[in-house]
C-alpha cells in the first residue's frame, strides 16, 4: 500500500451554516493515516514519513476493525494533566525514535487516535463515496477502545464552536456530507474554523539571559523567498529538555549575520541563526505591520523550513 497525501480543509472565518454538513472538533495533534494490508498496520503522517513504530497503541486497529484491509484518516492527540489537548505533548511522542524510549512514552505520555475518515475499506476504495456513507462505515465497522476513538459529528456547528471557544481548543472542521475524499486535495467541502491562530515559523535568531535562551526571533518566507521578521516570542510552553535541545541546535546553526531581509544590524544581543529550526507558534492576530500579536512558542517540530511561509495563513 502506497501512502497517500490526505485531504485538507480550507480556512473559513465563520462557521458555515449550510444544512448539508456536519461539524467535528479539530483535534490539535499530528495527522496520521493508518494503512492495513491484511497483514501489517503501517502509519504515515501528512508528509508521508513513516510513524509505525512511533505509536504502538495503533497496532490494535486491525482487531477493532471489521475489515480485511483499510486506510483510516485521523489525528494523533495527547491530553495534558488538565485534560486539554496538547500539541506539545504529541510532539514529544512524535520525536521518539528508540524502541525503549517509545515504550516509555506509551506509559508516560499515552496518545489517542481520533479517527474521522475512511479511504479504503474491506479492500475497496471508498474515497469517492459521500462522507455520510464513509461515516457510516466507520460507525458500524470500527470498534473503539480507550486510545482509538471515532470523532463525533455534530449537526450544530455554531454550538460546537462556542464550546470549543469556551474550552480554548483549536477549532472545528465543517464537512459537506455529500463530499468525497480527495486524495492530495484541498477543497471547500471541508472548512476549518479556528479559535486561535497558529503558524509554523523558523527561528532566525535568539537572545540569551545568561546561558539560557530567552526569546526567539521568528521569521517567515515571503512570496519572493525572503525571510521576514514576524515577531519575538518567549520560550512559552517548552520544557527544560526542549530548551536544552534547542540550545544544542543553536550552537550548530548560528551565523554571524541576520538572515532577515531587513533588521537592525546593531542589535549585538542577538545570536543569528541559519533558518533551520522550526517552531509552532500560536498567536492572537496579525498586527497592521505584519507582526504576530502575543505569539507563544508551542513546540519544536521537524520539517522543511521553506514551508514556513506567509502562505500558511
Amino acid at each position: 500500500m502506497k501512502p497517500i497525501k490526505p485531504f485538507e480543509p480550507v480556512t473559513s472565518a465563520t462557521v458555515p451554516s449550510s444544512p448539508h454538513g456536519i461539524s467535528q472538533v479539530k483535534w490539535d495533534g499530528v495527522r496520521v493515516l493508518a494503512y492495513f494490508d491484511k497483514q501489517h498496520l503501517k502509519l504515515f503522517n501528512r508528509s508521508l514519513n513513516e510513524r509505525t513504530a512511533t505509536y504502538p497503541e495503533l497496532q490494535e486497529l486491525p482487531s477493532l476493525a471489521q475489515s480485511v484491509s483499510f486506510i483510516l484518516d485521523g489525528e494523533i492527540v495527547s491530553l495534558n494533566e488538565k485534560g486539554e489537548p496538547s500539541f506539545h505533548d504529541v510532539m514529544r511522542r512524535d520525536r521518539l525514535k528508540k524502541a525503549n524510549q517509545i515504550a516509555k512514552g506509551v506509559e508516560m505520555n499515552p496518545i489517542f487516535y481520533m479517527v474521522f475518515d475512511v479511504i479504503l475499506w474491506d479492500g475497496k476504495w471508498v474515497n469517492d463515496r459521500p462522507l455520510i456513507e464513509r461515516l457510516e462505515i466507520l460507525e458500524e465497522g470500527l470498534n473503539q477502545n480507550k486510545s482509538i476513538r471515532i470523532v463525533h459529528s455534530h449537526e450544530n456547528g455554531e454550538q460546537l464552536f462556542s464550546v470549543i471557544k469556551e474550552k480554548g481548543m483549536e477549532g472545528i472542521v465543517w464537512k459537506d456530507l455529500n463530499s468525497s475524499y480527495v486524495i492530495n486535495g484541498k477543497s471547500d467541502s471541508w472548512k476549518k474554523v479556528k479559535n486561535y491562530q497558529d503558524i509554523f515559523a523558523t527561528v532566525c535568531g535568539v537572545t540569551f539571559r545568561g546561558n539560557i535562551i530567552n526569546t526567539f526571533l521568528l521569521g517567515l518566507y515571503d512570496s519572493n523567498n525572503q525571510l521576514r521578521y514576524i515577531g519575538s516570542a518567549g520560550t512559552g510552553k517548552l520544557k527544560n529538555d526542549e530548551i536544552s535541545r534547542l540550545s544544542e541546535m543553536v550552537t550548530l546553526v548560528k551565523q554571524s549575520t541576520s538572515p532577515f531581509l531587513e533588521f537592525d544590524p546593531n542589535r549585538k544581543d542577538i545570536v543569528w541563526l541559519s533558518p533551520e529550526i522550526i517552531v509552532k507558534v500560536t498567536y492572537l492576530e496579525w498586527t497592521s505591520d505584519q507582526r504576530l500579536r502575543q505569539p507563544v512558542v508551542q513546540t519544536i517540530t521537524d520539517g522543511d523550513p521553506k514551508t514556513c511561509s506567509f502562505q500558511q495563513t
Binding site: 472538533v25 495527547s78 491530553l79 485534560g83 489537548p85 499515552p110 489517542f112 480507550k146 463525533h152 464550546v163
Partner: peptide, 14 residues
C-alpha cells in the same frame, strides 16, 4: 488521561 478524554468528549456534546 483516558478518563480525562472521556470527560472532554462528553463535555463537547451538546
Amino acid at each position: 488521561v483516558v478518563d480525562l478524554m472521556d470527560a472532554l468528549q462528553a463535555s463537547l456534546e451538546p
